[in-house]
């Protein structure tokens, strides 16, 4: 396992004077679907963005397929969380997908018929062919999310990173997205997604990376997606109802509370 798709060592990221991610180590297994989970504000999205160089890091080393990130750009695709673009931008759905072909078309190269066909196929895979010539802002949130997935597909990457792909999308979109991701996995590609819905983790993913500012656990769903690790990451923020549902018939340990010393 010399060339893991992604290896992160000692990553610390901060916005201002307090770290959002502290000293994270992570090794992503090839050909698997890994979920990054953790409570709100645990630095899940920040971790992805720092890996991709979108936000600056305080410290940390990133290796992608055994080499520096800059040399492996072509092998990574990233699907951002919704609402990070100007939806009013003068661009059509198919134009957005074609942006994914950038590294193949090059700076000055022309889009050939073949390129256009590729873009069309990617759009078809997410079930959005009928919307090719719509302005991007005219779609629903779920449809927009699918278009961004199609753009990532057009990149033809080996490692797909997605930031909350299922956040606020309709059921049809969720189904479409998970089908595409599973088919990518069947093609031998690696998927790493920030995920917030714990109840779907075992169904959708093979592995989890649990984080709350610093990493809590990493491994297969069976190893790392346990009541213990979740308790550690989420503390009191996890509804007991959900825990019972995920891990039926396990007694909860009681411990004395530590009231915070007034500061």
């Amino acid at each position: 396992m010399g060339d893991a798709p992604l290896r992160v060592r000692g990553l610390t990221v901060s916005y201002g004077a307090s770290p959002a991610v502290f000293s994270a180590d992570m090794t992503v297994a090839p050909g698997a679907m890994t979920a990054i989970i953790g409570p709100n504000g645990a630095g899940k999205s920040t971790l992805l963005k720092a890996v991709l160089g979108i936000v600056p890091r305080v410290s940390g080393q990133i290796e992608v397929f055994g080499a520096a990130l800059e040399r492996q750009r072509a092998r990574i695709a990233y699907v951002p969380q919704r609402a990070s673009v100007d939806w009013d931008f003068p661009t059509r759905v198919i134009d957005v997908v074609e942006m994914g072909l950038y590294r193949r078309v090059g700076l000055i190269g022309r889009l050939t018929r073949q390129h256009r066909a590729t873009a069309g196929d990617c759009l078809a895979r997410v079930g959005m062919s009928d919307f090719a010539t719509r302005q991007i802002g005219q779609l629903s949130g779920g449809q927009q999310q699918r278009v961004f997935l199609a753009r990532a597909l057009a990149q033809g990457a080996d490692l797909y990173m997605l930031d909350e792909p299922f956040a606020g999308v309709d059921a049809a979109t969720e189904k479409a997205i998970i089908d595409v991701l599973k088919s990518l996995k069947d093609e031998g590609r690696t998927i790493l997604a920030v995920h917030h819905d714990l109840s779907t983790v075992p169904d959708y993913f093979d592995r989890v990376f649990v984080i709350n500012k610093s990493p809590v656990a990493e491994g297969t769903v069976a190893q790392a997606f346990t009541q213990d690790t979740l308790q550690q990451a989420y503390g009191g923020r996890l509804a007991t109802g959900l825990l019972d549902q995920l891990f039926p018939a396990t007694p909860a340990a009681a411990a004395p509370a530590f009231p915070a010393r007034p500061s």
Binding site: P80, S84, V96, M99, Y102, R103
Partner: peptide, 22 residues
């Protein structure tokens, strides 16, 4: 003319442009 594509991409979605290495 020469930088049309990267200009368009980075104007639309700067984060994505960065992940492409632009």
């Amino acid at each position: 003319g020469l930088l049309w594509r990267p200009l368009a991409i980075s104007t639309f979605d700067e984060g994505f442009a960065r992940t492409l290495g632009i």
